[in-house]
Simulated assay, not measured.
Amino acid sequence: MQRLPAHTRPAAQWRGRGGTQAIARAAPEEVAVGLSFDGRPHTVLMATPADLEDLAVGFTITEAVAGRADILGVTVEKSELGWLADVRLAPGTIQRKARPRTLEGRSSCGLCGVQRLADAVRPLPAVADGARVSHQAVQRAVDALEDAQVLGRATRATHAAALAGPDGTLRLVREDVGRHNALDKLAGAMARLDHDAADGFVLVTSRCSFEMVEKTVRMGGSILVAVSAPTDLAIQRAEGAGLTLVALARADGHAVFTRAERLFDAAPELV
């Protein structure tokens, strides 16, 4: 069984009516992960040290460094300062689409270190038609995600990204202190396990910024569901790429911002 990437730390908890008492809380690990391609350093991500091969593969795909077929393998090693993940690419693979970076990628930032405005918002491919999904299936996945977050339940300090089938059943879940990292880990796991993002939908626990839309599109997803609100640019990017964007997905419902034709209201006997 994989060790939970967290440590128990003491704290003093204050409550208005109960005063102060000693408690212990699980805190998720956050470490530096150096990502390189064929031995050439590219960026440093602040991430949770679990599923790092998934993270490396997913980052490669969602940042348009290379396609899944161009990835020959990933070597992950622990160092004194953190972790190193080196992605080996097929000979002749062109990396011109990768955003050049000069700084570390913080867990809260998807574009840290990008040097030019032109690299920040890049053209997106059009998504495939994908599956049609019921509103009830979306709610089924939202309800199930809480129990599926092992690290999140223990720490209340991480994000999750999940792949759900058309019926709302969760197929894959990945967690990280960074929302972009969690989605990249999901993308990598899907690529390694040959899961098709268009055969269902992607669900994230974070707010929906435009980078989350871009990564979902590059993963091949046609529907993205976020528990929090989208930015205006996220909506624009989703509409332009043909992605169905669902947000504010809570226990009592959700809002559809783009391409609502992929969602339908299931008949009572199908719920």
Rank of each mutant, 00 (worst) to 15 (best):
A249I: 04
A247P: 01
I235Y: 04
E239G: 10
V246H: 06
A247D: 11
T258G: 08
G242F: 09
G253A: 05
T231S: 14
L233N: 07
V256K: 06
L224P: 04
H254E: 00
G253T: 11
G242I: 06
A226E: 02
H254S: 10
A234G: 11
T244G: 07
F257D: 01
A260G: 14
A229P: 05
L233I: 10
T231Q: 08
T244P: 01
D232P: 01
A241R: 02
A255S: 14
R250W: 07
T231E: 10
Q236A: 12
A229D: 15
H254L: 12
A238W: 07
V225C: 09
T244W: 06
A247K: 03
R259I: 08
R250A: 11
V246Q: 04
R259Q: 11
L233H: 09
S228P: 00
V256N: 08
G253I: 02
R259H: 15
A247F: 09
A226C: 15
A238D: 01
A238V: 03
R262G: 03
S228K: 13
D232E: 14
V246S: 01
D252F: 12
V225Q: 06
A226K: 00
V227M: 14
V227K: 14
L243C: 02
A247T: 13
V225N: 03
A260P: 00
G253Q: 02
A251W: 10
V227S: 14
G240I: 11
A241M: 05
H254T: 10
R237M: 12
H254N: 06
V227C: 14
V225E: 14
A249D: 12
F257I: 04
S228I: 02
